[in-house]
Structures are given as C-alpha cells and as structure tokens.
C-alpha cells in the first residue's frame, strides 16, 4: 500500500492534522512501517496538487495544518479499494527455486532441504502465534496483519508438504523423458519477463 492511499484512507474518516496522520498511520500498521514526517507532508502536497485533498486555507504549513478529503479523493480511494492487486504472475520465489535446484543436484538430500525450510517457517509461525496469543485479540488491525502473515507462511509449509510427497512418489515411479515446462508456462500466463 502506498503512502498516498494510506493518507486518503485516514482522511476518509474525517479531517485531520499532518502530525495526527503520521501517528495514526504508524498505529494502524502495527508500527512495522514507520514514516518520516517528510514523507507525510510531501505526499499531502501532491494529493492537494491533484485535487484529492484540501487544506485549511488560513493554516500555516507544518504539523498543525489540517486536511480533508475532496469528492475526487473519495472517488479515487473507492476505485483503489475495488482494484485487485496484480497477482497474475507467479512471484520469483527463492524457496521454490532452492527446492527445484535440490531436486536436480546430484547427491543433494531434497527431503532434508525441505525439512530445513519447513522448520524455519514453523518457527516463524510460532513467533507470530505468540503475538496473537498475547495481543492480537485486543486490536483488530493488528490481528488481521498477524493472520495474513500466518496464512502466507502456512501456504509455504503446505507447498513444501506437497512437494515432499510429490518428490517421494516420483522417486518410486519410472523416470519420464526430460522436460522443463517453465518457459512455456510463463508465456502462457503472461508472466513478466
């Protein structure tokens, strides 16, 4: 999420001062994404230039200057909310690449490689779950962030489990002719080069 849309989102709740916008931004993102004060004011100036926010005419520049959303700003934010992020191309995932290399590398124990990554992911998930246990129940925004991270890591563990099973089955089947379908696959689904 860009700072631009984060500020539009905060202003959709009502008029706010610059300093207040910065503090609320940090609070909502669980303090994992601190902003410097300059980023807030530069972005606000651009939003004002584009007609998406308006400032109080009589106020001086600085932390106490108030801003509110214009109808155009509201429309821009609504449009952004409904625009799906581009997930059509598979990301270049280092974990996937490492497992694929291990499968082809003579002498590599691919199941052991998979287990190393599985354990690391579960250890990360244990840490996120501790946060959920202690705090997340009390703050909806933070709980959503923690859940998103847990589901992301969970998906990787599931992929490792599936890969483990697939590689085990493949080892007990007769070898197939060599093929490497990735370039074809990438073209078909329109992946970025």
């Amino acid at each position: 999420m860009s700072v631009r849309y984060a500020l539009l989102a905060l202003l959709s709740e009502g008029p706010k001062y610059g300093l207040q916008l910065r503090q609320e931004f940090e609070a909502r993102t669980g303090e994992v994404w601190p902003l410097n004060v300059g980023q807030v004011y530069t972005t606000l100036q651009r939003l004002e230039r584009d007609g998406l926010v308006e400032s109080e005419d009589d106020a001086e520049e600085g932390p106490q200057k108030g801003f509110h959303l214009t109808p155009e700003g509201h429309a821009e934010l609504t449009d952004w909310l409904r625009t799906p992020p581009d997930l059509s191309s598979p990301p270049r995932d280092e974990l996937v690449i490492k497992v694929m290399v291990a499968v082809r590398m003579p002498g590599a124990d691919v199941h052991e490689v998979i287990q190393v990554h599985r354990r690391y992911l579960i250890e990360l998930m244990q840490q996120w779950t501790r946060l959920k246990e202690d705090e997340a129940e009390f703050d909806l925004g933070f709980a959503l962030v923690v859940d998103a991270e847990l589901f992301r890591l969970d998906a990787l563990v599931r992929w490792l489990d599936a890969a483990d099973g697939r590689i085990k089955r493949a080892a007990s089947e007769p070898p197939r002719p060599e093929s490497f379908p990735m370039p074809k696959l990438r073209r078909r689904i329109g992946a970025r080069p």
Partner: peptide, 19 residues
C-alpha cells in the same frame, strides 16, 4: 527434526532495514 526455542516475537516487529 524439531523446532528450536523461538526468539521473542518482538523481533518480528522491528522495522525492515529498507523502510
């Protein structure tokens, strides 16, 4: 295999170096 004692979850909340 088994997991090691994980570090405190506070380490997850440190800002990433590039932010």
């Amino acid at each position: 295999d088994q997991t090691m004692s994980p570090p405190s979850p506070e380490s997850l909340l440190q800002p990433a170096p590039h932010s």
